[in-house]
C-alpha cells in the first residue's frame, strides 16, 4: 500500500482512538475493499466475505485501544480478518462433517461489457481462475492474495498469518507455480 495512504490511515486511526467515529468511517472506506478481497479469497463466498469483513471492522473499532502501532493498521486488520475467516472455515468444515451443505465457491459477478464474446471469454476465464484458486490450500491463497494483489511484503504476511517467513515465501512460490501450470494447461502462452 502506498506510503501516503498508510500515513493517512495512521492519522485517522489516532483520531478514531479518541472516539471520532467519522474518522473511523473514513478508514472503513479506505480499506473495506481490501478486507473483503482477503475474506473472499479465503472463503470463496461473496456474502460470507462481506459478513466477515463487517465483523472484522466492527471488532477493530471495539479493540482500537489495543492497536499499538507496532505493525501497520492494515496488517493488524488483515490479521483479524484472517483469524475470523479461518474460524469460519473450520466451523464450515464441522458443519460439512455433520452432513449439511458445504461452503460453495460462488460465481463471480462480472462487469458489463460492450463486447459479448469477449465478455463470455472473461466470464469463463474468471470462473476458471477462481475455481482453480479455490482449490489451493488456504495458507497459499492467503499468501497469494496479500502478496500479489495487496502488495504486502513477506515480513508483513508473516506478521498477519503468524507463520515463519520461510513458510510464507514457500506458500507464495507454491501458489505461483501451480497457477503457472494451470495457465499452460489452459493454453495461455506468452
Amino acid at each position: 500500500m502506498a506510503q501516503e495512504s498508510n500515513d493517512r490511515i495512521a492519522r485517522l486511526v489516532e483520531q478514531a482512538k479518541r472516539g471520532d467515529r467519522e474518522a473511523f468511517s473514513e478508514i472503513v472506506k479506505l480499506v473495506m475493499n481490501r478486507v473483503v478481497a482477503l475474506t473472499y479469497r479465503i472463503t470463496g463466498n461473496r456474502e460470507t466475505a462481506l459478513d466477515l469483513a463487517q465483523d472484522t471492522l466492527i471488532t477493530a473499532w471495539e479493540r482500537l485501544e489495543q492497536f499499538r502501532g507496532e505493525s501497520s493498521f492494515l496488517s493488524w486488520l488483515m490479521r483479524i480478518a484472517t483469524n475470523r475467516s479461518l474460524n469460519h472455515l473450520s466451523r464450515a468444515v464441522t458443519v460439512r462433517e455433520q452432513g449439511v451443505d458445504p461452503v460453495t465457491v460462488e460465481q463471480i459477478s462480472v462487469s458489463t461489457s460492450s463486447n459479448p464474446e469477449k465478455e463470455l471469454e472473461g466470464v469463463e476465464l474468471q470462473q476458471s481462475v477462481q475455481s482453480f484458486m479455490s482449490k489451493l490450500p488456504t495458507q497459499q491463497r492467503i499468501a497469494f492474495e496479500l502478496r500479489f494483489y495487496q502488495q504486502f511484503s513477506f515480513d508483513e504476511i508473516a506478521g498477519v498469518t503468524g507463520k515463519a517467513l520461510g513458510t510464507v515465501k514457500t506458500n507464495y512460490r507454491e501458489s505461483i507455480k501451480k497457477l503457472r501450470v494451470w495457465m499452460k494447461d489452459k493454453g495461455h502462452h506468452s
Binding site: 472506506k29 475493499n33 473472499y40 479469497r41 462481506l50 469483513a53 500479489f148 497457477l179 495457465m183 495461455h188
Partner: peptide, 25 residues
C-alpha cells in the same frame, strides 16, 4: 503473462455492496 492474466481477478466491491457494508458497520 501470468501476472497480467491474474491482475484482472483483483477483487472489487460493487457500489451497492460498498454502501451496504459501510452502513452495516
Amino acid at each position: 503473462t501470468l501476472s497480467d492474466l491474474l491482475v484482472t481477478e483483483n477483487f472489487e466491491l460493487s457500489e451497492s455492496e460498498s454502501e451496504r457494508l459501510l452502513q452495516n458497520i
